[in-house]
Design a binder for these strands. Structure first.
Lengths: 110, 110
DNA sequence: CCGTATCCACTGTGATACTG
DNA sequence: CAGTATCACAGTGGATACGG
């Protein structure tokens, strides 16, 4: 049990999983763009861990330029109900938590 | 969203939450005993964070000996469906993940 | 019983630069 | 585009001892 929960540990794991929610197939650069604040290193690291834990699958298309796609495995898919419940829970969060103390305002140009 | 998910980050958060599942009211020492491997420091630290994030409530009974009880707040209760789904997911985990590489065999006595 | 304080090691995370 | 390598740092986590 503890063992299994550790699969989800890591700052970006759940966020990544949400991106793959519902059977989506996403490219590396796609994920990178969709998750503000994540670095390539963290993205690849967490993906690799999820992959080796059997939650995420990885498909390499041998092309130029390279193209790699990620998706939920079957077991990963079975996480979706939990993800869904989590989403619902997060939406009901009190304001103090939502805004937290974390203010990252990436001033997008001018 | 990211902000809200961070409430659940931390090695013992989910495990603690599972102990409080379904409206249980548990004492400090009770929790400590129920979670093998956790230290007092970690238990109190994670409890305090959960408390200040509004997930867990704390009730002090001014007695000798002291008695403090923890429980889920209303918002914490609304996490239960997710916890439930997570439990179901964990039970469907492939064997490789369940056994993982973590073998902690605390040789008891002798 | 329920914490707090301190010390210390480790590992998770992040910025940056580089490669196939 | 996708990924690796390195370095540096902060926070987490663990052991132990002490206090109300």
């Amino acid at each position: 049990m503890q063992n299994v929960l550790r699969v989800l540990e890591g700052r970006w794991k759940l966020i990544i999983l949400f991106q793959l929610f519902g059977g989506q197939v996403r490219r590396f650069s796609d994920l990178e763009r969709s998750i503000p604040g994540i670095s390539q290193k963290m993205l690849i690291q967490q993906l690799r861990q999820l992959e080796s834990d059997g939650v995420v699958g990885r498909i390499v298309h041998h092309q130029v330029p390279p193209k790699v796609e990620y998706h939920l495995t079957e077991w990963g898919q079975s996480l979706c109900p939990a993800l869904d419940a989590l989403l619902l829970w997060a939406e009901n969060a009190p304001e103090e938590v939502r805004s937290s103390l974390i203010l990252d305002v990436p001033s997008s140009e001018t």
